[in-house]
C-alpha cells in the first residue's frame, strides 16, 4: 500500500468511517460548502476610518507613508525619498510602473539582485493589518518585494480594503490565480538575537508607501 493510502486509511479509521478510506466523491456537504463558499469569521472592528487605520498600522511597523495627489507625482516622490535618505545605487521598477516619466535610469523587470531600491505597484492594502498585498506576475515580479534594501510602493486609495478577506475575494474573482500573494507588513525584521528587534534581516530595511488619491 502506498504511504498516501496508508495515511488516508488511518485518518478515516481514526474518524470511525464505516465505509473505510474516503474518496473524493464521498465529500460531505459541509466540506463542499466550506470549499466553495467560504464564510467570513469575526473580524476586528477598525478603530477609526479605513485610511487612518491603515496609516496608523503601517507606521506601527516602521513603514513611512506619504500621500500624493496623482500618479504623476510618484516620480518626484521617489526622487525626494531617495535624496532625503541619501540612497544611491540602482533602481528597479515593476513593469507595471515602467510607463512613468522616470528621471533616473531604471531597470524594469524582476530583481537583478544588485539594485538598492525597488518601486512597485501593488494589488491592495489592508487597513486591519497595515499590509501591502502584492501579486506575483509578469507585471509585478515577486523578487522586487524581497531583494532590494529599500522598497517603495505605489498604492491607490481605491485599492485599500478593510480586512484580509476582501483580498481573497478579489483574487477569487480573477480568471486565474497568481502563484503568490505576498502580504508585506513593514520592513524585514528579526528578534533572533536577544529578542531585540533589528530591521533589514533578509528583505528590505526600509519600506515607503506612496498613497495616491482617487482611483
Amino acid at each position: 500500500m502506498s504511504s498516501r493510502d496508508a495515511i488516508l486509511n488511518r485518518v478515516s479509521s481514526a474518524l470511525n468511517r464505516e465505509e473505510g478510506k474516503v474518496q473524493l466523491a464521498d465529500r460531505p456537504a459541509s466540506v463542499t460548502q466550506r470549499l466553495q463558499s467560504p464564510e467570513i469569521h469575526t473580524q476586528p472592528e477598525l478603530p477609526t476610518t479605513q485610511i487612518e487605520t491603515l496609516i496608523k498600522n503601517m507606521e506601527t511597523v516602521e513603514m513611512s507613508v506619504v500621500r500624493l495627489q496623482s500618479e504623476a507625482d510618484v516620480v518626484n516622490a521617489v526622487d525626494w525619498y531617495l535624496e532625503e535618505h541619501g540612497i544611491d545605487g540602482e533602481l528597479s521598477v515593476s513593469p507595471s510602473l515602467a510607463h512613468l516619466a522616470w528621471t533616473k535610469k531604471v531597470h524594469s523587470g524582476p530583481a537583478t539582485g544588485t539594485e538598492a531600491t525597488s518601486v512597485t505597484s501593488c494589488f491592495a492594502a489592508i487597513a486591519e493589518t497595515g499590509s501591502i498585498a502584492l501579486k506575483s506576475g509578469a507585471d509585478t515580479p515577486a523578487t522586487l518585494n524581497f531583494l532590494p534594501e529599500n522598497h517603495l510602493v505605489v498604492l491607490k486609495e481605491s485599492q485599500v480594503v478593510d480586512h484580509l478577506e476582501a483580498v481573497w475575494d478579489s483574487m477569487r474573482a480573477q480568471s486565474s490565480q497568481p502563484r503568490a500573494i505576498n502580504l508585506v507588513t513593514g520592513p524585514s525584521r528579526t528578534g533572533d538575537i536577544e529578542q531585540t528587534i533589528e530591521l533589514g534581516a533578509h528583505g528590505p530595511r526600509r519600506m515607503h508607501v506612496m498613497l495616491v488619491a482617487g482611483e
Partner: peptide, 15 residues
Amino acid sequence: QHFSNYTSVMGGPKK
C-alpha cells in the same frame, strides 16, 4: 505583533 511581516500565500511552480 498584530501581524507578521511577511504572510505569503503561495502554490505551484511559476506560471
